[in-house]
Design a protein around this nucleic acid. Sequence first.
DNA 1: TATTGTTATACTCTATAACTATA
DNA 2: TATAGTTATAGAGTATAACAATA
Lengths: 155, 155
Amino acid sequence: MDKPDASLRSFLGYDLKRAFAVIQSDVNAVLQPFGLRMVTFSVLVIICDNPRLRQTQLAEILLIERPNLVAILDELEHAGAVVRVRAPDDRRAHELSATLQGQQTCDRALEAVRDHDARMTNGLDKNQREALHTALRVVQSNGRSVDDRRKIPRS
Amino acid sequence: MDKPDASLRSFLGYDLKRAFAVIQSDVNAVLQPFGLRMVTFSVLVIICDNPRLRQTQLAEILLIERPNLVAILDELEHAGAVVRVRAPDDRRAHELSATLQGQQTCDRALEAVRDHDARMTNGLDKNQREALHTALRVVQSNGRSVDDRRKIPRS
DNA sequence: TATTGTTATACTCTATAACTATA
DNA sequence: TATAGTTATAGAGTATAACAATA
């Protein structure tokens, strides 16, 4: 057959999975010169945009489980991009902030990823790019709510 | 901040990852009554649509590494949905075919996933749904070619 | 008691090398 | 010598339970 996956091509999950695989691979290659991966990049951007954020809040924003955030922050802290500071008002919590170097890395990485995004949407005009983002958010909002999903143990 | 991830929201990778996470979780829930997961569903559909396909070809179509396909096919074979038959002309190869039961499961699962897709794109009209698929394929084609990607060892 | 960050752990997914049987 | 399927294995990514420090 010429298109052996024609049936699957009509499904959103199939196209989404393949498009995401392509993007993730590419973005990781783009971020490698900055010593970043897709996750560490996302975490760094959130920390730069939201100074003194705490780990629990960061985990909620990025839908990462708290335990899994620990190694990611260790990586960024060892690289000198972010610091964990004991919160003065609650000595259990850590306030996360980017170092000057972390902010510079973040700015440059943001630019590189923006350029990459433009390349990945090459062939789509501005309206089509916006429509793509809009559609992806509609899909997200049509999913079961976080509360609903919590009731179903795995996957 | 009201939208702490506003910067990331402009990136395709971010929206794609979150949209795919929602879809995958939902689709797996939809497929559970059929004893299928997203991967086993995809494999079953390809086998139903392409009788006597060989494992290497199947792996290429779905971008799965050959070794990782083995357990997936074991799962489907133990469930009685597909069979591996020695190729008469090449006794190294396996020809994959769906059993009658496998075809019935496939048909019913296809319908369920089609319904689910309609729910996930609720709020988008027909043109917008088509535009979404088109855009996702443009993104895929803008990624580095498979040959290029092979030159870069890991993600 | 409850919460923050952490450790330990387990399960899935993915990727590579090397084996076997056939060609 | 090469190929098809397989095994073993290692690395990510992700999820849960339980602990120490603090509230």
